[in-house]
């Protein structure tokens, strides 16, 4: 594997007195797709927010392209080449679709390149072209998700942080969006850190996966191997082979940590 683009070591982040991330380390190699799986409240979004600078960690380091970025203001992190697609889309509701996309390119000065990328995202999501002058707030949830991904792409990032891109979308749309994410990674060479509850989709497009439970990483492996693990099948893919889940919790089963 290539040198890691993003390295996170011993990260601890709190919401007030509550420890949301309890000492996490992981790496994201350049041009790869890495996914972090976990249930509600496991701390997935907090990890992304800490990487992009919206939250400051209490301890630990975040190194991006050889530079420590923990505690930096989010607009500076964006300028370094990390685009965050937040959970729940967070489009600018009263700006038009095109204006939203132009805001994605806010940090860029090369008008020609911005024009090219605008064409590129329109080719990924043709529906955005037809809605270009419409207010973003009037789009459907799926279209807003497409807009949020496109907007992040407009910054021509080295790395994209995707927070639950499948949330609230129909299965067909989820498939479409994941295909585009795979294409962005393949064709544009953008490194992707993907946080998902839809483990099946995530494990199929990602190269490497981490499993997060209550603020700790409890398992990591290549996605091909994760897909074969009994615990993943049972808890994340819903394929039960024997018995019920009962009271068994991964936290208690530390053998495979």
């Amino acid at each position: 594997m290539a040198d890691p683009l993003l390295t996170v070591t011993n990260l601890e982040t709190y919401y007030g007195p509550i420890m949301a991330i309890r000492g996490i380390s992981f790496v994201v190699p350049e041009r790869s797709v890495v996914t972090i799986l976990g249930a509600n409240g496991a701390g997935k979004s907090t990890i992304l927010k800490t990487v992009s600078g919206v939250m400051d960690p209490q301890k630990g380091t975040v190194t991006f392209a050889g530079r420590e970025i923990q505690g930096m203001d989010p607009d500076r992190v964006t300028r370094l080449g990390i685009s965050h697609v937040p959970e729940g889309r967070e489009v600018f509701p009263f700006l038009s679709v095109r204006e939203n996309l132009m805001m994605g390119a806010f940090t860029r000065r090369d008008a020609a390149g911005v024009g090219e990328d605008l064409e590129l995202v329109y080719s990924y999501f043709p529906v955005l072209r037809s809605r270009a002058e419409q207010r973003a707030g009037s789009l459907s949830g799926g279209e807003q998700q497409m807009l949020a991904i496109s907007r992040a792409l407009m910054a021509r990032p080295r790395m994209m942080l995707l927070d639950e891109p499948s949330l609230g979308l129909s299965p067909r749309l989820v498939k479409e969006i994941f295909e585009i994410i795979a294409r962005i990674n393949r064709e544009r060479g953008v490194t992707v850190l993907l946080v998902e509850q839809n483990a099946n989709m995530a494990l199929h497009i990602a190269d490497y996966g981490y499993v997060l439970e209550v603020g700790r990483i409890v398992m990591e492996d290549t996605c091909a191997r994760l897909l074969e693990k009994e615990d993943i099948k049972e808890f994340y893919l819903g394929m039960k082979e024997s018995g019920v889940r009962g009271t068994r919790r991964w936290k208690r089963k530390k053998t495979w940590r």
Binding site: D73, D75, E99, F106, T107
Partner: peptide, 24 residues
């Protein structure tokens, strides 16, 4: 203008404006 739009964006959604690299 780019800055004018960025001000609107920052007013409408501060967090997303940060993610865009807008100095909110």
């Amino acid at each position: 203008t780019r800055v004018g739009l960025a001000m609107q964006a920052a007013s409408q959604n501060q967090l997303a404006a940060y993610y865009m690299g807008i100095p909110v």
